[in-house]
C-alpha cells in the first residue's frame, strides 16, 4: 500500500486530468447529443437520416475505433492538434453523443403526444414546441440514464491512456511499470480513484431522479 501513499500526487493529478477530460467531453456530448436527438425527431428527412446513421455507427463500433480515427486518421486529413488531449476529447464526445442522443430521444418519446398537440394548437412553431414543451419534460425523465452515460464516460476516458494521454489510467500504467512488484496495489489505487468520481455521480443520479420527476 506504500506505493499508493508515495504516489498520491500522481494519483491526484491523474484524477484531475480524468475529471477534466470527462467534464469537457461530457458537456460537448450532452450538447451535441441533444442536437442529434432534435434532428432525429425533426420534420426534415435529411436531418433525421443523418442523425440515425451517426447514432447507429458510433453506438455500434468500439470506442477504440473512435480514438483511432481522432488520433490517427484526422491528422492525416489535415486536422492537426498540439496535444493528444484534443483528439481524446473529440473521440470521447463523438462517441458519447450517440448514447446521449438515444437517451434524449427515448425521453422525447416518453412525453405524451398531447403535449405537442396542445403546443401546436396555440400557434407554436416546431422549434418552440421542442425547446419550450418537449425537451424540458424529456430531459427531466432522462437525467438518470444521462448520468449513467456520464459514469460510462468517466470509465471510457481511460482509453485515452492508451493513446498517450496522461490521465488516471495512464499514470496507473506508468506507476505499474515503475513498481513491478506492487502492480496489484497500484491498480487497486487506480480503481479507488475512479470510484471516487463515479460513485458520487451514481448518488447524484438517484437524488436528482427523486427531485425532478414530473407529476402527471
Amino acid at each position: 500500500m506504500d506505493v499508493i501513499i508515495e504516489n498520491l500526487p500522481l494519483y491526484w493529478d491523474g484524477l484531475l486530468r480524468t475529471l477534466f477530460l470527462s467534464a469537457v467531453s461530457g458537456i460537448i456530448a450532452l450538447f451535441v447529443g441533444t442536437l442529434l436527438a432534435a434532428a432525429r425527431v425533426s420534420p426534415v428527412a435529411a436531418l433525421r437520416g443523418f442523425s440515425t446513421v451517426y447514432v447507429e455507427v458510433l453506438r455500434n463500433t468500439p470506442l477504440t475505433i473512435a480514438f483511432f480515427f481522432a488520433a490517427v486518421v484526422l491528422p492525416r486529413l489535415g486536422v492537426r492538434f498540439e496535444q493528444f488531449e484534443v483528439a481524446a476529447i473529440i473521440a470521447l464526445s463523438a462517441y458519447t453523443a450517440a448514447f446521449v442522443a438515444e437517451a434524449v430521444r427515448s425521453g422525447v418519446n416518453s412525453v405524451p403526444l398531447g403535449q405537442a398537440e396542445a403546443a401546436r394548437s396555440i400557434g407554436m412553431k416546431f422549434g418552440q414546441v421542442l425547446t419550450l414543451i418537449i425537451l424540458p419534460q424529456a430531459l427531466r425523465t432522462v437525467i438518470p440514464p444521462l448520468i449513467n452515460i456520464l459514469i460510462a464516460l468517466v470509465k471510457n476516458s481511460s482509453v485515452a491512456g492508451a493513446f498517450f494521454v496522461l490521465e488516471l489510467f495512464g499514470y496507473g500504467r506508468q506507476m505499474a511499470n515503475a513498481n513491478g512488484d506492487q502492480v496489484m496495489a497500484v491498480l487497486l489505487g487506480v480503481a479507488f480513484f475512479y470510484l471516487l468520481l463515479t460513485v458520487p455521480l451514481g448518488i447524484l443520479a438517484s437524488t436528482v431522479e427523486r427531485k425532478v420527476a414530473i407529476a402527471r
Partner: peptide, 22 residues
C-alpha cells in the same frame, strides 16, 4: 410559419386536457 399563425386563431380544447405538465 403560416400554419402556426393560423392555429393561434383557432383555440382547441382536448379530451385529455393536455396542460403543459412542467
Amino acid at each position: 410559419k403560416h400554419l402556426a399563425e393560423l392555429r393561434a386563431d383557432v383555440g382547441m380544447v382536448f379530451q385529455s386536457f393536455n396542460l403543459f405538465a412542467h
